[in-house]
Design a protein around this nucleic acid. Structure first.
Length: 235
DNA sequence: TGTAACATCCAGTTTACATCA
DNA sequence: TCTGATGTAAACTGGATGTTA
């Protein structure tokens, strides 16, 4: 393989290797055969490698190196493909999350408005009934009795008022706490868990600008690569 | 059982060449 | 036509790991 000339520099020796074959790059036919073989086997046994090299008029080492480089190139390409798929999945989830968040905000504000309206009506009713007895417009005796009982309850034990009052007094973090209180009554632990999953996406991950600084989730990729060898993608 | 020699793989690098502005 | 920048394929290098005597 190497020239025997002791005065030949490494560079010249390397160049002479190429000149011996009178070709720097493999021919289209050689590449085609190598590609076809790579599709069926990404690693060749030494015996098969020698045979293929003979068929193509190459050195076995050249075939070995070509397979090594091919595996490296293919792996890079595959990583790009996987990355694009993951990015697309992420973008879909992020937009889904955003629309759900908007819908949720709309429902919460609607609930606030309804509570305020109800409060106003109750205040009006109290005001007009002061000293005039109970007005039972549109309600049965039984219903008015229930209403009377509710009014006699202390405010803090009425659940719908609890939601509203807390929403008025919570700080910035109160938004998520309200959601938990309103929709996950009795399931606070599950709510905390869900919020922890969702909250990070609210900060950096929902912005596509942050993709440049995105540290790849090695678990995701590791998981995929540990379940099956990367070269199984051919199937 | 420990170990040296060897083979193979991979990641990273070098080299030579083609292409293009 | 010349030239420098850039991309790519072939080949090399060095470290890690597995096998064998």
């Amino acid at each position: 393989m190497m020239s025997a000339d002791p005065f030949m520099t490494m560079k010249k020796m390397k160049k002479s290797i190429h000149n011996e074959n009178n070709q720097r790059r493999f021919s289209d036919e050689q590449i085609k055969s190598l590609e076809m073989r790579f599709k069926s086997e990404t690693r060749l046994e030494p015996r098969k490698m020698v045979q293929l090299a003979r068929e193509l008029g190459l050195q076995p080492r050249q075939v070995a190196i070509w397979f090594q480089n091919k595996r490296a190139r293919w792996k890079t390409k595959q990583l790009e493909t996987e990355f694009n798929i993951l990015r697309q999945n992420y973008n879909d989830l992020a937009s889904q999350f955003e629309s759900l968040k908007k819908e949720n905000q709309g429902l919460v504000s609607e609930l606030h408005i309804l509570n305020e309206e109800r409060q106003t009506k109750q205040d009006e009713r109290r005001h007009c009934c002061d000293g005039q007895g109970v007005v039972t417009l549109g309600s049965t005796d039984h219903e008015s009795e229930k209403e009377e009982n509710r009014r006699s309850e202390p405010e803090e034990v009425r659940p719908e008022m609890e939601v509203y009052e807390k929403s008025r007094h919570d700080d910035d973090d109160g938004y998520n706490n309200n959601i938990k209180r309103e929709y996950f009554v009795g399931f606070e632990e599950e709510a905390d868990h869900l919020m922890n999953i969702v909250e990070p996406a609210d900060s950096c991950l929902t912005s596509s600008d942050d993709w440049g600084g995105f540290k790849s989730n090695t678990n995701l990729l590791d998981q995929s690569s540990s379940n099956y060898p990367w070269w199984d993608f051919w199937s």
